[in-house]
Nucleic acid binder design. Structure first.
Length: 451
RNA sequence: GGCCCCGUGGUGUAACGGUCAGCACGACAGGUUUUCAUCCUGUUAGCGCGGGUUCGACUCCCGCCGGGGCUACCA
């Protein structure tokens, strides 16, 4: 099997960005497809930017998405001595050298030599100098990208880049290359923003005599305004998506479709099917825009197709309620109507709480002449046995005809009487759910209020 | 400035160089329905621009325009 390494830079907020989630998903799908496992590495060579809590939150989000992962053969801490050893080796062979130039020096050097040429420093014996890697003046470094094919980067345009600070601590492009090699990572799937960094990592690998992993660079995700997806675009993290009531399976399905499609236009796919069909080589090169509307649609489909047991459990967890019989009954009638978990509660709230008092709704529905209709409805269901949808319909439906009104003229007032809202599950199901006595009580309360 | 990536309807995508450029979401218009949602039917709208190559270009080449990334002793 293949180990796949996911680039993973924890954000300072602890949120798992949707773009990061997609990267993780693609890594996971590709690893699964190849019968391997997903290896997670945190890409902070120093952990200044993110707290352990933030890292935990992101791992939680990954777990919630049900993307299982391994920590890899070596931990962050264990890498440190290996980094220094590699650094010493490079210095020894002359592939790297100490250089005391500051950013300012580099800039003036470039002014003199033209902007198309990378900076070349001069070796110094000073111990208090940063370490730079020697980059060839000619030739080019080729990145063999699984998605884009071979991409040539002219060596001359790269600086002799710094691989370790004056204090000996290593920098990202060096650390990550050594990590990949030492952890025997075979495939690196990451964001487009690293494409230009790849030649540097390749140079480090080459200087150290390591082979290179396979690379695949994903285009970044954008918001509806075309800019890089960010907080401003609403739900930009999987935590927010979870809170908004989306299902992990639906998110996996939708996110997988951002930059990738099937040959036969299949849209709705279970996760095993995604695993079976996904190939990193088939991912597209253009950047995609995250569109929550389509996610909603996919989520709705998943919600409606869920087995009722799983549905009740999922709703219960989202609402922080026990999956008792009442909730189960309520879910049964609400399942076909909700697109997200968040939409379930407004539909079934009336079963657990008194009707909402909304003067606007009342004024709109409880018009003149409503009282007699409701009185007739109460009479029709009094003593009705069994109190289930079909008999209720048989008892109530004829009333509209005898009063010579449209069905809605009768049903909407009943709906408002028992729920306080104009939207609810089917009126017969709703009455059955509430039970005969409570239904009658609520309708009578409405009648009293009308007179 | 330099290097690199990307460009099919509003959105996501499909199309061995040959199809009326397909599918899905959305939007709009109808239909079903007790509300909402679902569901059904129809409509809408696209190959960024300009040159080549070719009998023929969304597809190959060049230029331009537009978007993005890298260019740190950040990751």
């Amino acid at each position: 099997g293949k180990d796949l390494r996911v680039r993973f830079a924890p954000s300072p907020t602890g949120a798992l960005h949707i773009g990061g989630a997609r990267t993780a998903l693609y890594n996971w799908l590709e690893a699964r497809h190849e019968g391997g496992t997903l290896v997670l590495r945190i890409e902070d060579t120093d952990l200044e930017r993110s707290t352990p809590e933030n890292v935990e939150q992101i791992l939680d989000a990954l777990n919630w998405l049900e993307l299982d992962w391994d920590e890899g053969p070596l931990s962050q801490r264990e890498m440190a001595p290996i980094h220094s050893e590699a650094l010493a080796r490079l210095l020894e062979s002359g592939a790297a050298y100490r250089d005391s130039s500051t950013g300012k020096h580099v800039k003036t050097w470039k002014d003199k030599h033209g902007s198309g040429r990378g900076y070349r420093g001069s070796p110094t014996k000073e111990p208090g100098a940063a370490i730079r890697l020697r980059v060839p003046d000619d030739g080019e470094t080729i990145v063999e990208d699984l998605i884009r094919g071979p991409i040539a980067f002219p060596n001359a345009s790269y600086d002799d880049f710094v691989i370790a600070r004056a204090d000996g601590s290593v920098l990202y492009n060096f650390a990550v290359a050594v990590d990949d090699a030492e952890m025997k990572i075979t495939t690196v799937i990451r964001g487009d923003d690293h494409l230009s960094n790849t030649p540097k990592q390749l140079m480090v690998l080459k200087a150290l005599g390591y082979g290179a992993p396979r690379y695949a660079h994903l285009s970044l995700l954008h918001g509806p305004d075309g800019k890089k997806l960010s907080k401003r675009h609403g739900a930009a993290s999987v935590q927010e998506l979870r809170d908004a009531g989306y299902l992990p399976a639906a998110i996996r399905n939708y996110i997988s479709l951002l930059g990738w499609g099937t040959d036969d236009d299949t849209t709705l796919m279970s996760t095993p099917e995604l695993v079976k069909r996904f190939r990193i080589e088939d991912v597209g090169t253009a950047s995609a825009v995250f569109d929550e509307k389509k996610l909603r649609w996919i989520n709705g489909r998943f919600m409606r197709e869920m087995p009722i047991d799983a549905y009740v459990d999922t709703v219960a967890r989202h609402l922080h309620r026990d999956p008792d019989q009442r909730l189960r009954d309520a879910c049964t009638v609400a399942q076909e109507k909700a697109q997200t978990l968040e939409e379930v509660w407004p539909l079934i709230r009336f079963v657990f709480e008194p009707p909402i008092d909304d003067p606007k709704v009342w004024a709109k529905v409880m018009k003149d002449g409503t009282g007699p209709l409701l009185e007739a409805a109460v009479a029709a269901i009094s003593g009705l046995e069994p109190f289930t949808p079909d008999p209720i319909e048989a008892a109530i439906a004829p009333l509209a005809e005898s009063f010579n009104v449209k069905a809605g003229r009768l049903y909407q007032p009943i709906r408002v009487a028992i729920t306080g809202t104009t939207v609810s599950p089917g009126i017969f199901e709703s009455l059955a759910l509430l039970g005969r006595d409570e239904s009658i009580r609520r309708i009578n309360a409405a009648i009293t209020r009308l007179s």
